[in-house]
Nucleic acid binder design. Structure first.
Lengths: 233, 233
DNA sequence: CGGTGCGTTGACATTTCTCAACTGTTGTGG
DNA sequence: CCACAACAGTTGAGAAATGTCAACGCACCG
């Protein structure tokens, strides 16, 4: 699995989404690829923390040894995920041991000594990383907020209210950025439920449902539904 | 609302969670507080982006003017949330207009010119910010993953498997870090449903439910349940 | 010794899912 | 240009999951 170019892998991480290409290239050139087999150790608890990792293939588990010698599993990571950033960036040592769980497990190690040098040389890099992490974080917080609404109606309402909408006050025009089945999946409901919700709201005059375009006729009521405290009948 | 000290407000943001206190103090001292009334503009689309904002009280809306003069609402923010980080940190100009939606609306403006200077002077600051943003992001991604599982059982299973656990292989000992009612809320289910799930699993020999301590007797089966493709009966 | 709040359990109501059929659109090959 | 397949979207009926309401035990705490 020599796989995709490193730059492409890094680019997909929230960390490097908006880093200027030449900088990213330099960072990519300073990464180290590691291939391990299940059970092999990536780093030990107490080791000086000099890098964080992206899982490209396989997986890893992070654990601490307990008093009684048993493992206390802190975290498990799968392809596409990163681990040990916080340790490598803000602490001196790894607070846990990391071990590959699959054969093969492929990792990309981003050396933080190098990264810190780059950050020093290029304030724009720090800005780019902080900016794109912030943007991702916001999106994730929004999704958590949506998904933790109890009813399907509230989830849908919250989502719609966050979507780019044109027209102010009493009439919002919302263009759905994806197919309804994808929207349903996004909200963790079935397409049928979504369809029925829209129909019910449409029948009651809350919205106009014209295919990919929704017109919200009563934004305030929608907001009430989003809160969850309503008599939906 | 002169309210809490600025430092405390900043400390609660994912951005500054692990920033060393003296640094945070300096950053806090360079922030500007702004109080606005509903309808007042915070910044205009096209303005040079020199700061990002924390909402302390009230709220704001971000919008772009449409071709036909109508507003295209991009985002709404409430107390505790931040906005315009990405713009202020990676772009030169604000891509949208921001306007207060409540009276009063209190904001804290974090000047990015200053912040960039600090980042240059203190590479540790960048590391701290990137580190804590990464940690937060991971937590949020985990929660989205949990919450987007269709069934309550799958949500619970996913959550349990992510919790710190001691003991390897065939027996996992998990100490619940919060009361069951809080766990239920976290998973967006009712305490009753949680209780019934645990009882069902307990009856089937999947787990031992001893108050605040759960012992998973069959981690593999739990993992299957977490995936969702199972005959739960 | 009450009181308060968590956890559990039961009966019942409601929501949501599943399965199945049907419609309408789109794109493709004849 | 038509016939047809493929698929998104809708609708209906019944099943399953989950929530609601109410009652009870139990621990903790004044």
């Amino acid at each position: 699995m020599i796989g995709r170019p490193r730059q492409e892998i890094l680019r997909q991480l929230p960390h490097f989404q908006t880093v200027p290409p030449p900088l990213l290239e330099r960072i990519a050139s300073q990464c180290t690829a590691r291939t391990l087999r299940a059970g092999e150790t990536i780093f030990h608890e107490g080791d000086p923390a000099t890098a964080f990792f992206v899982v490209i293939e396989g997986g890893a588990v992070l654990y601490r040894a307990n008093d009684d010698g048993k493992r206390q599993v802190m975290n498990r990571v799968r392809p596409g995920q990163t681990f040990a950033e916080a340790a490598a960036l803000t602490m001196r040592i790894y607070p846990a041991t990391a071990e590959a769980t699959h054969t093969p497990t492929e990792l990309l190690a981003i050396d933080t000594t190098n990264l810190l040098c780059e950050l020093e040389r290029e304030p724009k890099l720090a800005a780019a990383m902080i900016g794109s992490l912030s943007a991702w974080l916001r999106r994730m917080v929004e999704r958590v907020d949506e998904l933790s609404a109890a009813s399907a109606g509230a989830r849908l309402a919250r989502h719609l209210l966050r979507l780019p909408a044109s027209g102010k006050g009493a009439r919002l025009r919302i263009e759905l950025p994806m197919a309804k089945k994808d929207l349903a999946e996004h909200l963790a409901i079935t397409p049928e439920t979504l369809s029925r919700l829209l129909k019910r709201w449409s029948d009651r005059g809350l919205i106009d449902n014209e295919g990919k375009v929704l017109v919200v006729l009563d934004p305030e009521l929608l907001e009430t539904i989003a809160t969850g405290d309503e008599s939906e009948s």
